[in-house]
Computed example of a mutant assay.
Amino acid sequence: MDGADRRGWARIHGWGRRRRGWGGVAAMAAACAVAVAATAAPLHDTADDAVRQAQSTASVQQASAQNTCDHPEASLPPSGASGTSVQRIIRRGKLVVGVDQNSYLWGYRDPTSGNIVGFDIDLVKAIAQDILGDANAVTYKTVPTAKRFEAIRKGDVDMVVRTVTINCQRLQQEQVLFSAAYFEAGQQLLVPKQGSSITAFDGSLKGKKVCTAEGSTGQTKLEEDGHGARVVLVPNQLDCLVRMQLGQVDAVFTDNALAAGQAAQDPTTHLVGKRVTTEYYGVAMNKNDKDLVRRVNQVLQQYTAGGSSSPWMQAYRKWLQADLPGQVPPQPLYSGN
């Protein structure tokens, strides 16, 4: 990020409801690795029927087409076994996880506590609790979007939990495996409420500067069919919001789940058009750590079970429901391997 961008961080607006005390996004760019403590979410009787329907429809579907990538979200069946990869983590006594510290609601640095918190972080804690018996036995390493898979390949982290979309290209080229899906999202445009002629992912983008993160699925979609947009790439998605506030780009193209968080940060922006892709977030791990993938899938099975009282729904109500209503856990899809 250049000097103008850094100055622009201070321009990000207040947080509105449940966001008082936040002095801007600059606080999220502090240290790169901390251990944080979780806050329990209150229980409410909402979304019971939707959750039960999603889970009962196909809680354990089988997909035989993973190798052809017809179903990239198909993961290895769950298992509670402690294989080589899980034992490595147990011996170390810490789960090392690549996360974001700039994605509001998902993984961001709380300005009061200094801890990294969010929906993704609550899932990390559940994994640590299952493997190590301690939700706080985590070393967090912040990684930019374009470096997520490199960190996994090099062994710098055990996994990345950072709104990572599951897709064929990543399975085939990045040497990673994914857990079962834990959230459904899709690419959508974020624009200023005032003065923007962009109405959707269509011809209104012609000649406009559209910002997305390098290495993201947003970049892939824009390169496939950008409707004449001029693509601007940045290391991290939040940089796009800053550039749009500075007038350097006309729109942000990112997952609607992330864009909703950015719109919450800056109420002068909003989402336009429809979601143009369907994507699933998964926990990314090294392709050789199959026992760890299976273990994480068991954690997810437990994490999403229990209807409106499930840990997933508690985290969803705490972090996302106000800005992304109507969500339920995606049904898991497993390969037969």
Results as ranks from 00 to 15, higher is better:
Thr304Pro: 00
Glu224Val: 08
Lys206Gly: 05
Ala185His: 07
Phe253Val: 07
Lys221Gln: 12
Lys274Leu: 11
Val86Gln: 08
Trp319Pro: 00
Asn337His: 14
Gln219Met: 09
Ala284Asn: 06
Leu241Ile: 08
Gly282Arg: 03
Pro235Gly: 09
Val283Phe: 04
Trp9His: 07
Glu223Thr: 08
Arg317Met: 12
Pro42Gln: 07
Thr269Arg: 03
Glu279His: 12
Thr277Asn: 06
Ala229Phe: 10
Ile127Asn: 00
Arg295Ile: 04
Gln187Gly: 12
Met1Ala: 15
Leu238Val: 13
Tyr140Leu: 15
Ala26Ile: 12
Tyr316Ser: 08
Gln327Cys: 09
Gln173Cys: 01
Thr57Asn: 07
Asp48Cys: 05
Thr165Pro: 03
Leu95Ser: 06
Ala135Val: 05
Asp158Glu: 03
Ala264Asn: 11
Asn256Thr: 11
Leu222Trp: 04
Leu258Trp: 04
Asp158Gln: 02
Asp120Leu: 01
Ala33Trp: 07
Lys206Pro: 00
Arg162Trp: 10
Pro267Ser: 13
Gly16Leu: 10
Leu320Val: 07
Ala263Ile: 08
Gly24Asp: 08
Gln194Trp: 00
Arg230Ser: 12
Gln101His: 10
Gly307Tyr: 04
Gly155Asn: 03
Gln169Asn: 13
Gly218Pro: 00
Asn102Glu: 14
Gln175Asn: 15
Val176Thr: 11
Ala30Cys: 01
Arg230Ile: 14
Thr212Gln: 04
His44Leu: 09
Arg294Glu: 14
Leu105Arg: 15
Leu241Arg: 01
Tyr334Trp: 09
Gly195Tyr: 02
Leu76Val: 06
Gln188Ser: 05
Asp255Ser: 15
Ser308Ile: 05
Thr112Gly: 11
Trp22Asp: 13
Gly23Asp: 13
Ile89Gln: 01
Gln188Trp: 02
Phe253Thr: 06
Tyr303Phe: 12
Pro42Glu: 11
Ser216His: 02
Gly226Thr: 06
Trp9Leu: 15
Thr46Asp: 13
Thr269His: 01
Ala264Glu: 06
His44Met: 06
Arg52Lys: 11
Val191Ile: 11
Thr84Lys: 11
Arg295Lys: 15
Gln219Cys: 04
